[in-house]
């Protein structure tokens, strides 16, 4: 039996800033995972990934990352994605700090 498809988001790094971005349902790039479009269908996910990869003057290295539903939108299932969404653990830099500035 084929493995069940787990929910995914399209993620990449922004071309200029280099920071982590997520594809939203409105075809924009969000800095916050909570705003990402959650893809639950495999064919749909592949299609959205191809669309994202074509946006070469906005982002670098788009790929599908596993997520699970949470209270405030999708949550990462792997610790690497958890670090990507927050920033480094040794210094209060990256998204964890930026989100305060933008809040």
């Amino acid at each position: 039996m084929a493995q069940e498809f787990t929910p995914k988001v399209v993620t990449a790094n922004a071309l200029i800033e280099g920071d982590v971005v997520y594809l939203t349902a409105a075809d924009t790039w969000a800095r916050d995972l909570a705003q990402a479009e959650v893809l639950t269908d495999e064919a749909d996910a592949q299609y959205r990934l191809l669309q994202a990869q074509a946006r070469v003057d906005e982002i670098v290295g788009a790929y599908l990352a596993d997520v699970r539903p949470g209270l405030n939108g999708p949550e990462p299932t792997h610790f690497r994605e958890d670090f990507r969404r927050k920033g480094p653990s040794n210094l209060f830099h990256g998204k964890q700090a930026d989100s305060l500035n933008h809040a």
Binding site: D19, V60, P88
Partner: peptide, 8 residues
């Protein structure tokens, strides 16, 4: 110039 997890 590398592209890392959170930035260049």
């Amino acid at each position: 110039l590398y592209l890392q997890l959170h930035a260049y």
